[in-house]
Design a protein around this nucleic acid. Sequence first.
DNA 1: CTGTTAGCGCTTTCAT
DNA 2: ATGAAAGCGCTAACAG
Lengths: 352, 352
Amino acid sequence: MKSEDIAKLAGVSRSTVSRVINNYPNIPEKTKQKVQAVIDKYGYTPNSIARTLAGKKNNIIGLFIFDKFYNKNIDPNNPMYSIHDSPYLSELISYVTDAAENNDFNILISVINSQSKKNKFDKLIKSDIISGAIIVGGETDKEILGKIISSKIKTVFIDEYLDGEYDNIIHIYSENYEGAYTATQELIKAGHKKIAHITGNLKKFDARERLRAFKDCLIDNGIKLNKNYIIEGDFSLKSGYNAAKELYEKNKNNMPTAIFIANDLMAVKAIEYFKEKNFNIPQDISIIGFDNHSFAEILLGGLSTISRPIGELAIKAVNSLITFIYLDDKSKIKQEKIKSNYINRKTIKPPK
Amino acid sequence: MKSEDIAKLAGVSRSTVSRVINNYPNIPEKTKQKVQAVIDKYGYTPNSIARTLAGKKNNIIGLFIFDKFYNKNIDPNNPMYSIHDSPYLSELISYVTDAAENNDFNILISVINSQSKKNKFDKLIKSDIISGAIIVGGETDKEILGKIISSKIKTVFIDEYLDGEYDNIIHIYSENYEGAYTATQELIKAGHKKIAHITGNLKKFDARERLRAFKDCLIDNGIKLNKNYIIEGDFSLKSGYNAAKELYEKNKNNMPTAIFIANDLMAVKAIEYFKEKNFNIPQDISIIGFDNHSFAEILLGGLSTISRPIGELAIKAVNSLITFIYLDDKSKIKQEKIKSNYINRKTIKPPK
DNA sequence: CTGTTAGCGCTTTCAT
DNA sequence: ATGAAAGCGCTAACAG
């Protein structure tokens, strides 16, 4: 069934049918209803491929996840990360998809983890298949940025650093810095002075921001940075355990009394490690995480943490992009930050 | 830049350019190279929207996830499940996306969790936007099935039950029954006779199969079923804890010596519960899980379990679908099962 | 082997 | 207010 069939059935021309479908202004209510009745009766839906070719926007947004599947430094044959190992990415996919569908858009998902994928990415953003792109992953890649700029595709970056402003790119940030500052401040407020930090993957913007805030907060409070108290993790469960171990082994004789861990996932296994070493949480060591993962909350109900509302981030990103696609004017879009909040549970106590 | 431009530049007609792009047989090497050179020089890519309209297949596969976001029985305002709460679904998305992209296909992802989403699903499969569909979720919905059949869209069901054969539907199964039978058999082999089972969400096909195998295996071994030893879970972390509690409270005076838990995720929290109650695993209670989740493995390294190779399932599903799309003949596609294996780790011991 | 031509189903000027 | 006609960029049947 095509528009021509509807036209015949309704006794009008294809153009009129098109006008009804697209809600053109100067078309009398009578004609509109007549045509609409036929459309409804036959359950006609316009072919969106044809519409796109004829110049309409395609209601598809590309969600591009820049992440490594393999960490070659560790084991070239063994998958290390993947989107399903990251609750952050999994949640983002959930919520972005949902937000898009609530606006009658669909999500085309793509994971970019190799050079050949980068080339496919390039083709995709040059094509008319998608009318906008959402970029996540936190590691801004010059080559990719170049492709995005030259393709002119409307793009939103979620929690990625960019030095410069580009006409076709908008940003959505969550309060990584502010949240991490609060986290550290809460530890200090409880009386701690020997405070450690297990970082996220420092290739990622959010991890770097959280580290920066940690340092700033200590300095602002007149606490000297102790290099041995900063351990590099990578946001994964496993690295939480390893980082905790490294922290312990480096500081056996001078353990910190509190730790700010860059995400809840690492906190899960870090806490496990400390328990194995017979530390009591929070009596011996206070812990604050970041993200407020539902996963982590179920695993260890009492973790004090900082929320990062991924749902809001996703909705904001999708809505901004859709507005951008239709308005074609970046200046009309508010690029505010998504708020973080301190979630006070049971893993912070004053030091002994 | 369009094919006409390339044609002019290469001194041929548009048709010839099209033939080169589509690898037509009877076209001399010389012409081919001449045209290809121009294509490469200008980095021309054919507009896939136009190709699709002109009759080519669109290299997009729809991945449809049928799952509830909310469990109204428990709390209408509170999200209960979502794809990111299920490692199975998260992994499937990862691997399906990867497999598709390795075959130059893209994945359009959609989560169907409401009536309005069902209607959008209907539009999508009737459109030419996607040339095939993958269905996951395990709860075959009559309404959806009807839409799929009448739309004729080429579809692959992953681990879903279907009574009947349809020309446009193919199946990929993993060995739910066989794996669960093995799991139970391993417990019996170790000497257990008092064996319990925590089921998955029984609305789902895989959960029902696992339960069926559990029962069959006990009967085949002459062990009488104890109703109080079968507890209904729903595959989620939380339900693992709750089910373990229910099992304990129902059987305080006659606890089973072994439990087959329908997925590793529930096993994580079930084990936590039993430890709280001062049971030793496996001395007091042997446990076997299912799925061999990397997540669960990191959380509790020693869990004995049954593998369900989600990567293979995904690859098989994508490859079969692509073959189906191009061959247009279901009979040529092998619909074999993806093998499960017993992973012998540290949570099974003979009873005391 | 290759060019010409007719669509694919829709939107959108242009004309009335 | 509405119909006729052109065109989006490509493929494929037809002709030679």
